[in-house]
């Protein structure tokens, strides 16, 4: 029987030295839709991404993808299991061209597809992210906004059911934000599930189907954007006490 949750986190905890960064966190993400992780700086959002994608190993708790336990698996096996992620610092392959960057996402599916199919997949991903015209440009020579969309194209090229996007909209101007919004909604329409970290609450409100609020490594609330943004205590945590008054 297929599980309705694509990702289930149960009792997830992580400490660095004596500092507890994630504490007994339970979160279930349904298939399809966009869930935004919000919370003040240091809430543990990126650490949570690292725990899910295998870059960190939890001290306790389990990570399940479509019911399959992937806790503690190395990042490349998590990626092969069906999770693709972007990074806050983008982490493009700077000496490679845009096409090569995107092809690497398609390449990692080698064995399933031929070379021409992988090139086609990369081309489609670049077009969807609006970076097809930059195919032969070295990643190091791109503007920040261009790099953001190449990072997104790389994630699109990998046919993973769950996409983890770490601050994908930060630093983008108005038109770029609208473009980003359209791309993400199109991905959801085709059945992908998106979990994103975002500080721009306007974007979160517009793009999200669900919002999860983290503070000090604990999940404080999980609900629709209207439900979450109606909670004054969360606004106080996010913006400081003055915001709630």
């Amino acid at each position: 029987m297929a599980t309705e949750h694509i990702l289930e986190l149960t009792g997830l905890s992580k400490s660095f030295g004596g500092n507890r960064v994630i504490t007994a966190l339970d979160l279930a993400i349904s298939r399809g839709g966009v869930t935004s992780l919000v919370g003040p700086n240091g809430a543990g959002k990126t650490t949570l991404f690292d725990l899910v994608t295998g870059f960190l190993t939890p001290d306790a708790g389990r990570v399940r993808l479509l019911g399959r336990d992937i806790t503690g698996k190395p990042p490349h096996l998590v990626a092969r299991a069906g999770i693709v992620r972007t990074f806050q610092s983008l982490r493009l392959f700077s000496s490679l061209t845009v096409l090569e960057n995107v092809l690497l996402a398609a390449d990692s599916e080698a064995g399933m597809r031929s070379s021409s199919e992988r090139h086609e997949s990369a081309r489609v991903a670049m077009e969807r992210a609006g970076v097809a015209g930059l195919a032969d440009v070295r990643a190091a020579d791109l503007s920040f906004a261009e790099q953001k969309f190449v990072s997104l194209a790389r994630a699109i090229a990998k046919p993973a059911g769950l996409m983890l996007l770490d601050e994908p909209a930060s630093g983008l101007d108005g038109p770029s934000l609208r473009r980003f919004h359209a791309i993400v909604r199109a991905l959801v329409d085709e059945g992908r599930t998106v979990l994103l970290i975002e500080h721009n609450l306007d974007i979160v409100r517009q793009i999200s189907d669900r919002v999860a609020f983290l503070n000090n490594g604990r999940l404080l609330a999980h609900g629709t954007p209207d439900e979450i943004f109606a909670m004054e205590e969360l606004a106080a945590l996010y913006f400081g006490d003055d915001a709630a008054t």
Binding site: T53, F55, P74, P75, H76, A79, R80, V84, R85, F87, R91, L92, F93, S94, S95, L96, E100, N101, L103, L104, A105, D107, S108, E109, R154, K158
Partner: peptide, 20 residues
């Protein structure tokens, strides 16, 4: 291509499913 990517950024390559 994967080898050059590995030199540039190992973590990003892992995130795409490659075993460094």
């Amino acid at each position: 291509r994967a080898l050059r990517a590995l030199r540039d950024d190992e973590a990003a390559l892992q995130a795409l499913g490659r075993d460094p």
